[in-house]
Amino acid sequence: MSTSTVSTTINGDAVQFACPTDESLLDAIRNRVGLTGVKEGCGTGDCGACSITMDGRLVCSCLVLGVEANGRAIETVEGMADGDQLHPLQEKFIEHAALQCGICTPGFLIAARVLLERNPDPTEKEIRYALAGNLCRCTGYDKIVRAVQAAAKEMRKASKKRTRK
């Protein structure tokens, strides 16, 4: 039994794929499901470009087997926007020029989203440590951290508005 059929949920959609049991979830998502927003920078969990969430947990999809996704709920960068409404992090990354080549951007967005869900008002230091598993070689991280700060601020404002209602 070296191939397995996997039933999973990706960005809310039920997805089925068959993959060899030793294939990484990263390869399965990219090559079998066709979501190439999940990037491979190293394949060894050192760069974070392949970050996704699985049942809400931030993981490197290169360090998960495709077969392990069976019955799980997966979120990738492709599922961040709500229809034509970008996630505040996506908006702020564009506005703050927080990307240059952009290859690391999907991973940063996912990691930053998990951070802000857990901690809506992180300090600069908390942001930097939470994003330490995501390598960026273009920006020196400056504008990325500023974009996350700006998104956090906007999300706090929006959630205040919601609770007032």
Binding site: G45, L58, G133
Partner: peptide, 9 residues
Amino acid sequence: IGSDQVQGR
């Protein structure tokens, strides 16, 4: 150990 991503696993 590793990153937040690695600690998730």
